[in-house]
Amino acid sequence: MWTDFCTDLQSDDSRTNRHGFKVLYLKEFADILSSKRFWVMFFLFLLIGIVSVRGAISTIGQASQQAQQQGASLTDYLFLTLFTTSGSSIYSFSTFVGFLGPIFGIMLGFDAINNEAAQGTLNRLAAQPIYRDTIINAKFLAGATAVFAAVFAVGLWVTGLGLLISGIEPQPEEFVRIVVFLLVSVIYICVWLAISILFSTISRHAATSALACIALWLFLTMFLSLFATGLAGLLFPVNSQSATISTALGYYNLQVGISRISPYYLFSEVTQVLMNPNVHSLDIMSTLASQDSQVASYLPIGQSLLQIWPQIVAMFAEMVAGFAIAYICFMKKEIRA
């Protein structure tokens, strides 16, 4: 089986296909980098990053002055709070990524396939010596590369700026946490890239797919939690007389379970734990149990990752599932003008 696979990789056809893939991938990547909308989004993110870090610094400054007056210290992981603290009139950087990241992904993918079809280049491209899936693979990978590059560029820029302005020195562990945070952000945005490519495959017009993506994004980001609360309240009436502790638990589990469908919710959970070593668990029972007895201590990065591993895997699975459906739809699509 394995040797079959290897000989297949060496065959003339797959070599031709790989070459085509490379050419197409580079072309797609170059297209993204030379597109206006990519740079508009990129600079928007950069601006937001800078402003949110400034806001965070002023908040932290006030807080630390207060803490000093009381003779206490804020936290040992001060640098991380640059990413998670909101200013007086602006959200924190991590909130912005959670909120606007999807738009970045959608913008890169919403017209990937249908624009090609509308231009009449899809059948010409499909007639080149490549397998059909190479087209969608190259497009997704080029998009993912662009997301990776943009997120790390902005993230590291913000890190450096925070370092310069605040003078806070990041510990090595904090730096690792930031890198992991950026990687998770890439996955999170790629979920939306995959979804938008899916919509671009199934809808004929770019406008339709963009609107469908935005609708889904709004629903998952804003309304799913409302829906989850409503449904959980209906099935587990916590405010009634007969409510027991198990009703409350059922309510909580259902509500969180539904909310976790949304990549936004998953991402915010990941950020909570990853960027704040003080948070020990996301599970309500262990949080309640440790509330009284909790010793103020920090989780090492390995333990933090362990807490959010399911969320990361779930996000990754959503990305893979979105791309897989897009892939299947594309392979079954009728290629004609």
Partner: peptide, 22 residues
Amino acid sequence: RSALTVKKEVGYLPDNVGFYGD
């Protein structure tokens, strides 16, 4: 079955051919 080999040898000019406009 060997679409790739065929596509290497055959040029296709589709109806209403399109190009990348940019």
